[in-house]
Simulated assay, not measured.
Amino acid sequence: MTKHEFEVAMTCEGCSGAVTRILNKLGDEVKFEIDLPKRLVWIESEKDVDFLTDTLKKCGKEVKYNGTK
């Protein structure tokens, strides 16, 4: 699976919790890590980047795709 890095404008545990809830809805199709202090989210998935970006935007935060890692 490809590992993608996103910057998400998270400022608190509530923000990272919202991201976690949204990504958990995708089930086993994704694996993810969140680094709140750096405001980064890494997602391992075969889904396309546009789908993952749109999914992250559902938490109401600004999202920027940084590329694959």
Rank of each mutant, 00 (worst) to 15 (best):
M1P: 11
M1Y: 10
M1K: 06
M1L: 03
K3P: 08
K3T: 15
H4S: 08
H4L: 11
E5G: 06
E5D: 07
F6M: 00
F6A: 05
E7Q: 14
E7C: 07
E7R: 13
A9E: 15
A9C: 03
A9V: 01
M10R: 03
M10V: 01
T11D: 12
T11C: 09
T11N: 09
T11K: 01
T11M: 10
C12A: 09
C12R: 02
G14I: 09
C15T: 12
G17S: 08
A18P: 01
A18S: 15
V19C: 03
T20C: 04
T20D: 14
T20W: 04
R21Q: 09
L23V: 08
L23F: 06
L23D: 00
N24E: 15
N24P: 00
K25H: 08
L26P: 01
L26A: 00
L26C: 02
G27P: 11
G27H: 06
D28T: 14
D28C: 07
D28V: 13
E29R: 08
E29G: 06
E29V: 03
V30I: 07
K31R: 09
E33N: 11
I34P: 11
I34A: 04
I34W: 10
I34R: 05
D35F: 07
D35Q: 08
L36I: 15
L36N: 07
K38Y: 11
R39G: 14
R39F: 10
L40F: 12
L40H: 05
V41Y: 02
W42N: 04
W42T: 10
W42R: 00
W42E: 07
S45I: 00
E46C: 03
E46A: 14
K47S: 12
K47T: 03
V49Q: 11
V49C: 11
D50K: 14
F51A: 04
L52N: 10
L52G: 07
T53P: 01
T53D: 02
D54T: 05
T55Q: 00
T55K: 05
T55G: 01
L56D: 05
K57T: 06
K58G: 10
K58A: 14
G60L: 14
G60T: 08
G60A: 13
G60M: 13
G60K: 06
K61A: 13
K61Y: 14
E62H: 09
E62R: 10
K64C: 00
K64P: 00
K64I: 04
K64R: 13
K64M: 12
K64D: 09
N66Y: 05
G67K: 04
T68L: 13
K69V: 15
K69W: 13
